[in-house]
Each structure stands twice: as structure tokens, then as C-alpha cells.
Design a protein around this nucleic acid. Structure first.
Length: 836
RNA sequence: GCCGGGGUGGCGGAAUGGCAGACGCAACGGACUUAAAAUCCGUUGGAGGGAAACUUCCGUGAGGGUUCGAGUCCCUCUCCCGGCACCA
């Protein structure tokens, strides 16, 4: 009778594998369901209980769907390029390729012992050249459509390690490894034009079943705002400063214009020597700009809450509304990459400008009535004052009228701005997909010979390396993949280039276009490149002619349910939606959106409430749990521990509770099987159908903890009503439990004399009639307070019930000396006698 | 500061506007045992009354409101968590 989970689990895992029970079929007649979990990064740490939470829960969904007759795709693969493996290689000398293979083997072993019903025939690996051939192919399509381009942008630079750092390697403004201050250094980077898709990325969220908070976070991140671009002419020259504002109504309150240090006008003004436009405090300005350029993002945003700036003395900008001359400043609190990097300063009606004006003694002019500007900025809407002919208008009216006026004069226009920036697609690392681009000097010379008036666009068609022009030549599709060469040293080059730059024999190639000497791009792609489209590859993982067959994509896409971490909402989720939309535009992807439904699981913390980490020594190893209690216990616990989307701390005692529960199931079923000829009592039938309903309803809503509780209740009930349990109840219960505790239920299914597998049997549907009892408990309230509970037959009328309850002793007590003024009656549920 | 989501026993948490605290853990009492572990049975929000079956009052962060009735809806405040953050 002892439940030997180790033996049982191994037995069924072998059985499933042998029968190939969970591989998605190619039968396109069947309705499909595509269930997806974020494929893991196979780290050296091994499988985490957090992975198990997501995989177990969605496994229950997948298994249930299969029993319901769907053709289910529930695949797994490896997102295996990335920094930790490269760092590990640097430290230990173990090649990333070897380390990755080892880690994958380790993960695979753990996952198999959990018995997740993945379709292992479709396993993919982003570091496999057969896979990244298509990652590179997608990049080439971006390039061809002009959505991949180069730009000089500042990266995180560690002056001591002499390498570029990823954002996650910068901790509080310092290099993670050597703790020196991270600086900003401009480097040429590949960029993807995600901004072109900003609107669609917002709008198309509409039809999708994403957790509301996920939609909100994405919309927030894209940060669309409607405003006006206003031209401020610079006095005595042709230059124009374009500022972006959402508060056109405050334009009469402008007392200065502030430029970001990166603003192109600043550099060009510094170059001008003509006396009219000479910056009087040239030296100071130059120093200020150089200092702020050196500042890291962290210093500029986190540390420098105190605004700094410097006036460009001698330079004035002209307010187009009232022709007023206002001073021009440079301040590094102005974001260079947003809204053109220039703002109009309206101290009376903006907190930031108020601070800035107070600090540097700028004028504060009130133009919207309603606040007390001697105390603080007034940022609400109001009625305009000191605004010439726009006085007396409300802010909203004024915004329209002033924008109209500006548009007529040609000195302003409506504009939409986004916070979203283009995606930096270059990494100066070894362990990533090589970018399939070659730089050719001869092609440049050829084209300049042929066409003297060249139309090539800088950063799209040609680039400049060390002062010389080179054509950007894409590697022909037939030559893909550009394989990542095997190197012995992954040490940084010290120049900010990737370690690939040291491999002369790899870097130097013949130009695929002209055959001349050319050089390869040595940057690699970011982590997100491989995960951008992996869910498409699962539909046809072996395809050598395209990233996936069209018919297969059409059948399987979109993903019906995608679950992953909340931390991927703004990066992976947004990037992959963008990539998919692009592939839709060029006729590869069959739908506008890749994921129909998106949920997120909460983190699993250690018992002490902190993050699990080797350094805290509080890591829970799933394999150890499996050894001690079995995979089914681990699965059940992970689902039972709390609401699926919530962060939750591990509790070792809670695991034991789940183990006890499964043992009771075991005991109940085997005990029952000693005498199988019982028939179910009506109480039992009712209970098991109610259980059935509960499971169906809750799984739809991504609730996994309450179904487990319902099973526990049922088992407690069943152990007390053993006599009334028939085969129908036992079988129904086992089928319902099977998606949650697959090994245990397979074994019991077989032991009670059924043929395996339980998963090839159909999922039970509940009968609504059976969920209703012939007897109900009626709640009796007097003035809204519970005063009695009565067991009554089903469907009694109000009058009959009233008659009955008025004879109840307690009810009589509470009604003594009172008159019933009103009665609220809900059939089979409640009666409320109101005396007030 | 802005945008989300929350605050319910000793703990994790349940509750289509209608029985607050399901289920699990822990704790306590008992059974089994030489003993412990495991297992099983019972008790367990707080305060009061009763010999007892039982029974009364209070109770879901604070205050107000809507309603016959509020953990649930509305307003104000407060604290916690997540995201964004000088985005004009």
C-alpha cells in the first residue's frame, strides 16, 4: 500500500516517452492549442523552483486540453546565448559551447524528472547554427527594409575594464566587476527601428487577452504623448530651436529655453566665432558640456536630482507668440533623446522649471490663474492671464487656439512623441549571433566612381570607420549562417570591440559583392534576438529552407496562451511582438499578433523572504524536493502555494502538506478498490460534479491554487463517506486530478483496472443538474444580520419559507416587538426580513 | 511624482454585493509507540455568558458614503509591493 513515488514516477515517465504520448501531431483536422512557456536560459545554477511553477501550471493546462481532444503544442527549448556563460568562460576557461551543452543536459535531466509533458521532439537551441541561421536571416530582412541602421550612441563604458557593459552589469552606476564609475562613451551600434511600430504596438493590444497590468506597462513604456512642436528662432542667425510641449497654453510664461548638452545647436554655436553670435562664456560652457557628457546615465538621472545648467551668454531665442527675447541655457536635466532635446522653460507652471528658475534667478511669470506661484508651480489647467489675446480662455481652449495660430504662422505644429527609443541591437561580446554584415571599401570606391553624385545614405548603405567610408554589404542569404568561430580567448579587446575583432582570419573576408578585401562586423546580437521568434520555430523546428513552413505557421499561430515572468513585459514581450509584426508585414507571419493570451507567474522567494541566491545559501533545489517527496508533490505545492501571479515565499512545511494530500488520494483509491461494487450516493455524485465545475471554471481564470484546495476538500469528504463512493466518482476524480498529479493518477488508473494512459481518455464534463442538491441551506437574516440557517428542500417559494422561519425560536426572539416592513428573498439562498 | 496591484487569524491564503476566515501550515490536546518520527482523531479570529447542548457582542489598514445587506461598490486618507521616472 505504500506509495513509492520514485518508482511510480520513473515508470510513467518511461511509458510516456516510449509511447511518444505528448508530441503534437501533424493532423491539421484537429483543433489546435498552442501553449507556451518562456524557454529557459540554461544557467549553471540549474533548474529553479520558479521555472517549475510556470511549467507545472501550464502543464496542467496542456494535459487537460489534450484530454479534451485538442492537438496541443507545448514545446521547450534553450535560450542559450548570453553573458553569464561568457563570464563563466572568462573565469574558468571552459568554452561557452561546452558549458552550454553541460547546462542544457543538466536542465533537461531535471525537467524530465518533473515529468512535464513537453514535446521533446521539437526542442530548439538558439546557439545551434541551424537555428541562428534564421535569426540572422531575420536581421537581413530588417536591414533590407531599412529598419536596421547604424548610429553613434552612448554605451555604458567601464574605463578600467575597457569594455562596454550591458545595463544589467551596471550596479548603482558602477561596473559590476571592478566597481569603478561607469562612463558614457559613444560607439557605433546597430539599431532596429521599433519606434516605427509604436502605434501598432499600442493599438493591437486591444483584441488581446493579456493581464491588464501587462498592457498598462507596455503602453506606459511606449509613452505616447500628444503635443506641439514650437519653433524658437535664434536671434541674429538662421538656426531654429524646436521645442516639444504638451502645454502650449503656457507659452506666454516662457522665460528661457534649455537645450540638452547633446543638442546639435550647442556644438555648432560653440564653433561659430562671429562676434554677434559668440558665446561670451565659451570656456565655462565647454567645461560644463564635457563634464555632463562624461556622466553616466545613473549620475544624470538618479544622483543629480539637483538641476544644473549654464547660460549661453549672448544667445537669445525668440518666442514666436510675443516676439520676446529669452535667454538660452544648457542643462543636463533635459533628456537629449526625447522631443528634440530642447524645452521651453515655464517656471510658473512646471515643477522642474520652477526649481531651475529659483536656482538660477530666472523670471517666473504666471499665465494660468488658479495657483499661488510665490509658493510653488501651478501645474493644473486653469484660465489664461497675461497672455495677450488669449486671455480668459481655458487651458484646453487655449491649447487648440494657440496651436492653430502657430500652424498658420508656420512656427509650430501638432506632434506626437514617444518615450520608446529604437532598439540597440549590437553587443560587444563573443557569445551571441554574429551580425551578418561585411564592410567593403572597394564597393564604396566603385560606386563613387560610377555615380559621382552618390545617393547612398550614411548609416544605412555606407558607414565611416576611422575616417574612411565603407559600403555596408549584407551577407547573402545563401551564405547563412555566419557561424560563430571557435575562439580560445574571450578576453575583451580593450577597444570596446567584441572579442571577435581579434580573429583576423575570421574578420577579413572577401566581399560577397565585389570579391575585394572586406571586413566582417564583429558585434554580436543581444540575447533578445533568439527569443524574438523562437515560438515560430517550434511549429517546424527542422526546416532548412525557411524559418518555418507557411502552412504550419498558419495552423499553429498565434500562441493561445503564453506565460512568463513580469520582468519580460517591456523587453522580450515588446521586442518579440515588434519582430512578429515586421514578419507579418513581409508576409511570413500569418497573424498580426503572436500571443493571444499572456499571463505572468510571480517569483518564488526563499523561505526567509529574500531572493534565492547562492550567496545567501537559501536556494531550494527542485531535484532535492523530487527526491524527497516526488515530482507530483512538487507540482501540487507550486500550484497550491498561492495565487499564480503573486510573489510568494517557499515553505518547506507546505510541501509536506501537499505530500500528505497525495498519500491520502493513494490510500482512498486503493482502499476503494478492495470493494469496487459500490454505487455512488447522491451526496458523492453532487460533490464530484461540483469539483468538476470548480476545476473547469478556475483553470480558465489562471487560478491554480483553488483547484488544489477543492481536491483536498473532496478527498477529506470522500474519506468520511467511503461507503457511498462508486467507480464513476473515483474515475472522474482521477481524470480531474491527472493534469495536476500525472504520475500518481496514471498508476492508480491502472491499479483500478483501467488501461493506460489516463491521458488518452476524455476529460469529464460535469452535469449541471448533478451540481445542485435537493436540499439547500437557506440563510435567514434579520436587518441584514445572520440569525439562522435552515436546511430546506430545493425551490421552496417565499411564502412557504416565511411561514417556516416564523416558527423558528431564534427568529421569533429577534423579531419580538418588531414589524416586518420588507422582505428580500433570493431563491434557494437567502431571506432577509427588514424591520426598519 | 506618475501608472499598476494590494492590506483578511500566529503564517500562506479562500470568499458571482448575501454564512468572513474554505484549503493548507503552525500550535495545542488525544490515540498508536518502550520512546521518537510518521500516521490518525479533535480544538484553534477576539472578548463575554452558561454545568452543558449552546449563546451574545466585536472583527477584513483608518474614516466617511451607497445599499435591506459591503472584505467586495464609491470618496478621502494611510501603509506595503511592482513598474516608470527631470519624457516637458
Amino acid at each position: 500500500m505504500e506509495y513509492d513515488f520514485a518508482k511510480v514516477e520513473k515508470k510513467w515517465q518511461k511509458y510516456w516517452e516510449k509511447k511518444n504520448l505528448f508530441s503534437a501531431s501533424s493532423d491539421k483536422e484537429k483543433p489546435k492549442t498552442y501553449i507556451l512557456i518562456e524557454f529557459p536560459y540554461p544557467s549553471g545554477e540549474g533548474l529553479h523552483v520558479g521555472h517549475c511553477r510556470s511549467y507545472s501550471a501550464l502543464d496542467a493546462v496542456a494535459r487537460k486540453k489534450r484530454m479534451e481532444g485538442y492537438n496541443v503544442l507545448y514545446p521547450i527549448g534553450w535560450d542559450a546565448f548570453g553573458l553569464p556563460t561568457e563570464n563563466y568562460a572568462l573565469k574558468t576557461g571552459v568554452h561557452p559551447k561546452i558549458a552550454t551543452e553541460k547546462n542544457i543536459a543538466n536542465f533537461k535531466k531535471s525537467l524530465k524528472s518533473l515529468g512535464i509533458s513537453f514535446d521533446w521532439n521539437r526542442e530548439i537551441n538558439t546557439t545551434d547554427p541551424k537555428y541562428y541561421k534564421w535569426t540572422q536571416w531575420i536581421f537581413l530582412q530588417f536591414f533590407k527594409k531599412g529598419l536596421a541602421y547604424q548610429a553613434e550612441i552612448p554605451i555604458n563604458w567601464c574605463p578600467s575594464c575597457k569594455i562596454g557593459l550591458a545595463n544589467e552589469e551596471v550596479v548603482e552606476g558602477k561596473c559590476e566587476r571592478c566597481e569603478s564609475e561607469v562612463k558614457r562613451e559613444k560607439r557605433k551600434q546597430w539599431m532596429l527601428k521599433i519606434t516605427k511600430y509604436a502605434d501598432r504596438l499600442i493599438e493591437d493590444l486591444n483584441g488581446l487577452n493579456y493581464l491588464e497590468k501587462i498592457k498598462a506597462q507596455q503602453i506606459n513604456w511606449i509613452g505616447k504623448s500628444y503635443g506641439t512642436e514650437i519653433d524658437f528662432k535664434v536671434e541674429n542667425c538662421e538656426n531654429i530651436i524646436k521645442v516639444f510641449t504638451t502645454r502650449t497654453d503656457t507659452i506666454f510664461g516662457v522665460t528661457a529655453v534649455v537645450l540638452a548638452p547633446e543638442h546639435p545647436l550647442v556644438a555648432s554655436l560653440l564653433r561659430i566665432q562671429n562676434s554677434e553670435l559668440r558665446i561670451k562664456n565659451y570656456g565655462e560652457v565647454k567645461t560644463y558640456i564635457e563634464q555632463s557628457k562624461e556622466k553616466s546615465e545613473f549620475e544624470r538621472t538618479q544622483l543629480a536630482k539637483e538641476k544644473t545648467g549654464i547660460e549661453l551668454k549672448g544667445i537669445r531665442a525668440i518666442n514666436p507668440l510675443n516676439s520676446e527675447r529669452v535667454p538660452v541655457w544648457v542643462g543636463d536635466y533635459v533628456v537629449g533623446t526625447y522631443g528634440g532635446g530642447a524645452v521651453m522653460v515655464v517656471p510658473a507652471h512646471d515643477y522642474r522649471d520652477y526649481d531651475f528658475a529659483k536656482k538660477y534667478g530666472l523670471k517666473i511669470r504666471e499665465v494660468v490663474a488658479g495657483g499661488n506661484i510665490s509658493q510653488e508651480a501651478f501645474t493644473d489647467y486653469g484660465v489664461l492671464i497675461n497672455s495677450g489675446k488669449f486671455n480668459q480662455l481655458s487651458s484646453q481652449e487655449a491649447q487648440e487656439k494657440i496651436t492653430d495660430w502657430l500652424e498658420k504662422k508656420g512656427s509650430g505644429r501638432k506632434k506626437i512623441q514617444y518615450k520608446l527609443r529604437d532598439w540597440v541591437f549590437s553587443r560587444q561580446h563573443y557569445w551571441g549571433e554574429p551580425i551578418p554584415i561585411v564592410y567593403c571599401r572597394r564597393c564604396w570606391e566603385n560606386q563613387s566612381l560610377i555615380k559621382s553624385g552618390t545617393k547612398s545614405r550614411l548609416n544605412y548603405d555606407y558607414t565611416i570607420i576611422k575616417g574612411k567610408e565603407y559600403m555596408i554589404v549584407p551577407v547573402p542569404e545563401k551564405d547563412l549562417p555566419v557561424e560563430l568561430p571557435y575562439v580560445e580567448k574571450y578576453q575583451p579587446t580593450g577597444t570596446g570591440e567584441s572579442p571577435l575583432a581579434n580573429l583576423k582570419e575570421w574578420v577579413n573576408v572577401n566581399c560577397p559583392k565585389c570579391g575585394g578585401p572586406a571586413k566582417r562586423e564583429t558585434d554580436t546580437m543581444p540575447n533578445w534576438a533568439g527569443s524574438n521568434w523562437y515560438f515560430m520555430r517550434y511549429t517546424d523546428p527542422e526546416n532548412e529552407n525557411s524559418l518555418a513552413n507557411q502552412e504550419k505557421l498558419k495552423y499553429w499561430m498565434p500562441v493561445d496562451w503564453y506565460n512568463g515572468g513580469m520582468e519580460h513585459t517591456t523587453l522580450h514581450l515588446l521586442y518579440s511582438r515588434f519582430c512578429y509584426k515586421f514578419l507579418y508585414d513581409i508576409g511570413i507571419a500569418p497573424t498580426k499578433e503572436p500571443y493571444q493570451k499572456r499571463t505572468a507567474h510571480g517569483m518564488v522567494l526563499a523561505e526567509d523572504g529574500r531572493k534565492m541566491s547562492k550567496s545567501f545559501g537559501n536556494v531550494i533545489n527542485p531535484e532535492k524536493i523530487i527526491k524527497a517527496y516526488g515530482a507530483d508533490t512538487l507540482r501540487i505545492y507550486e500550484m497550491f502555494m498561492g495565487p499564480f501571479d503573486q510573489t510568494i515565499a517557499w515553505n518547506a512545511q507546505g510541501v509536506k502538506g501537499c505530500y500528505r494530500f497525495l498519500q491520502r488520494v493513494w490510500e482512498l483509491v486503493l482502499d476503494w478498490s478492495k470493494d469496487k461494487n459500490k454505487t455512488s450516493s447522491s451526496k458523492v455524485i453532487k460533490a464530484v460534479h461540483q469539483l468538476n465545475k470548480k476545476i473547469n471554471d478556475d483553470l480558465e481564470k489562471a487560478k491554480f491554487n483553488t483547484p488544489i484546495a477543492a481536491f483536498m476538500e473532496f478527498i477529506n469528504f470522500a474519506l468520511r463517506n467511503k461507503k457511498g463512493i462508486g467507480r464513476d466518482a473515483i474515475e472522474r476524480m482521477l481524470k480531474l486530478l491527472a493534469p495536476f498529479a500525472p504520475h500518481l493518477t496514471e498508476e492508480l488508473w491502472e491499479r483500478i483496472g483501467n488501461s493506460p494512459s489516463i491521458f488518452s481518455h476524455s476529460y469529464p464534463q460535469y452535469d449541471k443538474k448533478c451540481t445542485l442538491a435537493e436540499e439547500i441551506t437557506l440563510i435567514v437574516q434579520i436587518d441584514g444580520k445572520l440569525r439562522a440557517r435552515l436546511k430546506l428542500p430545493f425551490n421552496l417559494t417565499e411564502d412557504k419559507i416565511k411561514e417556516k422561519i416564523l416558527t423558528d425560536r431564534r427568529v421569533q426572539n429577534f423579531l419580538a416587538g418588531k414589524k416586518i416592513k420588507k422582505t428580500i428573498f433570493l431563491v434557494n439562498r437567502l431571506i432577509n426580513l427588514v424591520t426598519r
